[in-house]
Simulated scan of single mutants.
Amino acid sequence: MTKIRAGSVKFEHVKKTFGNFTALPDLSLEVEPGTLVTLLGPSGCGKTTTLRLLAGLEHPTSGRILIDGKDVTMLPANERDVSMVFQSYALFPHMNSLDNVAYGLESSGMKKNEARERAEEGLKLVGLAGMGHRLPAELSGGQQQRVAVARALVLEPQVLLLDEPLSNLDARLRRQVRTEIRELQQRLGFTAVYVTHDQDEALAVSDRIIVMKEGHIAQQGTPRELYEAPASAFIADFMGEANVIPCEVLGVENGIAEIRVGRALHRLPAANAQPGPAQLAIRPNAVTLMPDDKGDFPGRVAHSAYLGDHIEYEIETEFGRLFFVDSDINEPLPGQTDVSIHFKNRGLALIAQ
């Protein structure tokens, strides 16, 4: 299989309503050719509607959708140069893997011998060479998922769409298969739009993440940008969990803010904050818990749980109950222990009010 010609994607002020419900009020976004962009967000945020609009399974109420510069807004699904990997895989149970992969090619008019040859190549591409004779029921969940990806890729689409492709796999297999998808995308250079509600999955596979909330883009950027510089408390908590507490910005100079939190002063990237009230996002692993009174603010252990390589703590503080993790499993802090919270150098982000 040759390297797939990657196409760009553009939504221009797309609105989508279902009766009286507006799923997408006014969506504009771009996907660069050869990149993997993830639409991330909670249930009902509009990410699946966006994917279905791009696939041609729905049509917008208003606005335009372009693929590689071509207006496809009202084109049916079979006239768009896209392929989709569904959450359920949608494999034909009575067909073996080879026939499943070749089906789309044969349906488009390709001769059977040529279709089967390309299907064999597609199975080899996803690590299933020699397994074309197996029925879906004879494959593991991860193997079925790879057959679905091969079936989509052999059509050589300009854009590959993936709708929650790993949701039916267990945690360990999800890690393995997401790595395979990412390596395949980078090797072949195709454009991919990936939908998930799993933050770890999005961080692991994406060139860029678009976080959606109630049909709007809440924030977009690289995985590192969204994790380390969230624009809101919603993003901070959604991208990997965070404790969000109030703080005060004392001053800003050269993009660095001096803040007061509890009884301590810190300097952080300003993130558009101005002097006055603000919020501080604290990642669970961004602190050290010490049985002293010299930290940023005091607390008391309300609950702890041993999880093998770390301990989870819930700490009662003046800001409410906060969640932290500690890799020191040799000396766990018992319940009702008075502690102070010491901030580390990483895992803190200032959020403007």
Rank of each mutant, 00 (worst) to 15 (best):
C247H: 01
I181Y: 06
L98N: 06
F343Q: 00
L57M: 13
P60K: 01
K16V: 01
M212H: 06
E120M: 13
E117W: 00
A302R: 15
L173F: 05
L123R: 04
V147K: 08
S232I: 06
Q158Y: 00
R182T: 13
F238T: 01
K15E: 10
V154P: 06
E258K: 14
R134Q: 14
R146C: 02
D296S: 15
I282V: 15
L226P: 00
R321I: 15
Y103Q: 04
M74S: 13
N96H: 10
D68V: 02
F323C: 11
M84D: 00
V211W: 03
N345K: 13
H310D: 11
E314W: 14
S28N: 09
E228H: 11
T35M: 13
N243P: 07
D81E: 13
V177S: 01
E121I: 10
E253K: 15
G255T: 09
E248G: 01
K47A: 06
S43N: 13
E164C: 04
G130W: 04
G215Y: 01
D326A: 12
G221I: 06
T35F: 12
A77C: 10
L160W: 08
P246T: 07
V82W: 10
L51N: 02
L203V: 09
H310S: 12
I259Q: 05
F297P: 00
L29E: 04
D293T: 13
S88V: 03
A148G: 07
T17F: 07
V14N: 00
E201F: 03
V252H: 01
G276N: 09
A352M: 02
F324P: 05
A231H: 07
L173I: 15
T48F: 00
E225C: 00
S43W: 00
L54S: 04
R134G: 02
V249T: 02
Y103L: 15
I256G: 03
A6F: 12
G295P: 10
A137F: 05
A90R: 10
S88K: 13
A115Q: 09
S304K: 11
G127T: 07
V72L: 10
S167F: 12
G251A: 13
T17E: 15
A302G: 12
H310G: 00
L128C: 08
K213Q: 14
N272M: 09
L155Q: 14
L54H: 06
G56E: 08
H303I: 12
F18Q: 13
A204K: 03
I311R: 09
L125Q: 03
N330F: 11
M74H: 13
A349T: 07
V261S: 04
H197S: 12
A55P: 01
V193P: 02
F323H: 15
F21V: 15
P284R: 08
V126E: 00
Y313P: 05
K10I: 14
T317L: 02
D68M: 00
V147S: 06
A218I: 01
A150Q: 06
S97L: 09
K213H: 12
K213N: 14
D163P: 03
G34F: 09
G127N: 09
V154F: 01
R52S: 10
D71W: 01
T337V: 05
P157V: 07
V205T: 07
P298W: 07
Q158S: 15
H342Y: 09
A242R: 00
Q219L: 05
E138C: 06
I259L: 01
R178Q: 12
P93Y: 02
E318K: 11
N243S: 03
